[in-house]
């Protein structure tokens, strides 16, 4: 760095080059405010709890981050997660746990592949395609539900252990989540597939001219997204412990918000999963904070929306300057 740079420009440049720093600062600030609001809340137990709740959100947000890198979105992720959880829980008493998990994940893969077929081969807008797939899948779930209601449900102990259990105060979900996050971050940064996602997202025409078969990339991507959503469903059922028809649907929009707050551009080509994880933590802490305020539900919704908007706007200003 040359000596002519003022500390301010140096700071903005640093922030622009390391977009994670302001996010982590924001997270720390939120936790600090929480501690002031309710002294003594900060404990290993509370941190464990926050992480436990944030894990399914962060995993579902992985679907959004990866698809958003190519300029797409996966609005069927919540539905796919719900289906996987429900199918697994209802089939487990009939077929046994491993078979049920395999069938449930196969459903998730199928939904992802349908998305991929429409988006990659028929060139349907991802928003519309994933919306339509979500509608169809939800209808299938409702029909399926009528035939299995009598069989009873079973949630495997392993999933409950993963979803709710903790060892020495640390949530067990991290056993799955840390390798998962490491794999995604390594994948997007270091593998050819990851680079292809950024290439397709920042300029699909240029990528195609450089010999990228973008339809193969997109097909693989949306199938992968379906699989991730399925895994999220399995974790979530271990956390919630009752299969319902709207299990993960309420996470659909927050998962988009987590990716956006985490600095992934919805137009593609910019962002990464590291930011999304912090984004999911920010949203979870924010929800706790709003619950603590003892406000009516409506006011909480208003604040939640405004804060997401403010954070995103600020973040865009910060990173664009560099």
């Amino acid at each position: 760095m040359s000596a002519t740079l003022t500390p301010v420009t140096r700071l903005t440049r640093l922030l622009a080059q390391n977009p994670l720093i302001p996010l982590i600062l924001l997270l720390a600030g939120l936790v600090l405010v929480l501690e002031i609001m309710q002294p003594g809340i900060l404990s290993v137990f509370w941190i464990g709890n926050t992480i436990k709740v944030a894990i399914p959100l962060a995993m579902l947000a992985a679907c959004q981050t990866l698809t958003m890198l190519t300029g797409g979105i996966d609005l069927s992720a919540g539905t796919v997660a719900t289906i996987t959880a429900f199918v697994m829980a209802t089939l487990a008493p009939l077929l046994g746990v491993p078979e049920a998990v395999a069938i449930a994940l196969a459903c998730a893969l199928l939904a992802g592949a349908v998305n991929g077929f429409g988006i990659a081969i028929c060139r349907v807008h991802p928003l519309i395609m994933s919306l339509g797939t979500g509608l169809i899948a939800n209808g299938c779930l409702l029909v399926y539900q009528r035939y299995v209601i009598a069989t009873g449900t079973l949630i495997p102990d392993a999933l409950v252990w993963l979803g709710t259990g903790r060892t020495w105060g640390i949530p067990n979900g991290l056993v799955l989540f840390i390798p998962f996050a490491a794999l995604i971050i390594w994948g997007q940064r270091r593998t050819g597939f990851g680079r292809l996602l950024y290439a397709v997202g920042s300029n699909e025409g240029a990528a195609r001219l450089s010999g990228v078969r973008s339809w193969q990339v997109l097909l693989a991507l949306y199938t992968l997204s379906g699989l991730i959503a399925g895994l999220t469903g399995l974790i979530l059922i271990g956390l919630v412990k009752t299969p319902s028809l709207s299990l993960a649907l309420r996470l659909d929009l927050p998962s988009v918000a987590a990716a956006v707050v985490g600095g992934t551009s919805i137009f593609g080509g910019r962002g990464g999963y590291g930011g999304t994880i912090v984004g999911a933590l920010i949203l979870t802490v924010l929800t706790t904070m709003l619950t603590l305020l003892h406000m009516p539900e409506g006011a909480r919704g208003i604040l939640f929306g405004l804060i997401i908007l403010a954070v995103t706007a600020l973040y865009i200003r910060l990173t664009e300057k560099g």
Partner: peptide, 21 residues
């Protein structure tokens, strides 16, 4: 805000929903 439309209106979805409640 120069934030993409889809993100702004997603945030406003929560705001208006809260207002209605």
């Amino acid at each position: 805000s120069r934030v993409p439309d889809i993100v702004v209106t997603l945030a406003m979805l929560f705001v208006w929903q809260g207002t209605a409640l």
